[in-house]
Structure formats: structure tokens, C-alpha cells
Write a protein that binds this DNA or RNA. Sequence first.
DNA 1: CAAATAATAT
DNA 2: AATATTATTT
Length: 314
Amino acid sequence: MGEEVQMCEFEGDEERVLEWEAGLPSVNDLMPLSQLLIPPELASAFIIKPEPCRSMVDVNRASQNTLSSLLGQSPELSLSNNFNFKSFTEERTRDPLDVEGDETDLTREGSDSRKLRRIDSGAEEADSALRPENCNDDLSARALKRPRLVWTPQLHKRFVDVVAHLGIKSAVPKTIMQLMNVEGLTRENVASHLQKYRLYLKRMQGLSSEGPSPSDHLFASTPVPPSLNESGGSGHGCNGGHVPMPIPMPYAPQMMPMPVLGMSHGHGHMGMPVGNTAAPHPYHGFESHPYNMVQQRDWSGTKFGYQRVVGNDK
DNA sequence: CAAATAATAT
DNA sequence: AATATTATTT
């Protein structure tokens, strides 16, 4: 009977995800990019032209090509490499979460382009770049500044939905944040977005018939629910004005069933945390910690996946 | 004082 | 332009 490679041992092991990067070699242990995989002699013997020294830029470019081809896009025009291969060891990945299986977009991107230093060949002495700096992310882990949030269409949709249900009157950052129920989303995040959203609405009203400016990518794509009428005012209803959570439709913490695609033939997809596919949590069902309900989803076909373990609701 | 909003800053 | 951060106001 056919015997294939067993590559999945899914056990109820929650910690596994966290340990994911534990066993990985540190940047320091990795073979330097400048090092040739095939000795020149051997190479010439087989008429293999020695690989040119690869730099980080080359790797990035190659990666983009790969991704692009997978996505069916033109591999070119990728002059702007946002890909940063900073060590996962120190990089604090985060997760702008999005839920809901609708819409088509998967514009998830974590583009924090930092100074992409050029590790050029010939000067591999640049190893000095490997400063044995802070290796203890354990302690500094929390106080680290979180990467800026990217309002993906999914997130925005959620945002709009909630705002709509609340009515612009009572749609305030804190409430919105709570109803959106997105891990890691802060009040500031929402406040900022709300501010912009309001400007958008205002600007829209001024224009007679609809005409979402082409620059309003996100907003334009999301049909502004006419429910933007007031509802928080007095006289309607059931509550005088405070609306802690009367909405019958708070986004429930969803758990995504990410289809375990046969990622067999795939080539190691660069640094994407593949194994963490929403493990079949051995939910003991009683730990209703506000956290832990990692709601991630859909790394499919997308560039990278981010995950943050703890959210800070407050 | 906390939260919302407006105004800036990156 | 998109978010973050800070300053003011409620």
C-alpha cells in the first residue's frame, strides 16, 4: 500500500504554535547569502556556472517573482520591495485580523519597510551587521511598539458594519472597537480610522450624486450603508443614549476553519508560518479568556501571515 | 479622569 | 495617503 510521507502530526498542542520559531536557527546560524552552494571547482567540472553572489535584494526579488507567478500577476514592476526578511526572532509579528468569509480581497500586507540595508557581495565582512543585540525578546516583548495597523477591506467592512448598526451618532471609538471584536485592535486604531471615515462621509455628502473619488480606494469599495441615519438620538427607542451593547449583532469571535490545503509540493513558502493553521484546538471549552481566541484566517495565496498572540483590550 | 474629537506628526 | 500621536474638548 502506498506509503507516503507523513508530514502532519496534528496533536492537540496549543503551544506548538508558539514554539514554532523556537527551533529555528537564528540569523547568525544561517549560511550567509554570499556563500556559494557549490564549490567553484566542482561547478566548473560540471559546467555549471558559479552562482553569482546573492544579496538580500536578489532574494527578495526572486520571492516576489514566485509570489507573483502564483498570483498570476506580472512579476515585474516590483521595484518596490517591501519584503523585509528581518529575523523572525526579533520581529514582532502582528495580526490585523480579519474574519468573515466573504468579499474577494486579500489585500493583507504588512509593509513596514525599514532600512533595507544592502548586503552586497564581496563585503561579507558586513557581518558586523549582526549585532548580538537584544536577544531577549521575552522581556522587551511587551513594551515593543506594535506595527501599524493595516485596514484591510475585511477590517474596514467590519468597521463600516458596526458603525452602521450603531448609527454615526453613537458610533464612538470605544464602542466600535468592542463591537468589532477584533483582537489587537485598539481604540486609537479605531479612532484614527473613524476620523478619516467621517471626513470621507462629509466630503461625500457635499457631492450631489455619488462619485467616490478614485483616491478613496477603501471607502469607495464599501457601500456606505444608508443606515447612517441617526439612531442614537432621543426618542427612538429603547435606550436613552448609552448603548453599551444592545446591538443584536456584535461580531462573535469567529474561528476560522482554514482549509488545510495540500501544501505538499509547495516549496517552502519563505517565512510564512505555515504550521499554525488554526490548530484544532482542544478547546476544553471553559477557558473563556478574552484572549486566546486567535481569530486568524486566510493566509491562502496571500503574501504573509501575521499572528499576534495577545491582544490588548482595554 | 476617561474618552472623543481635532489637529498634527510620521 | 494612511496611520499614529498629541493636543483639546467634552
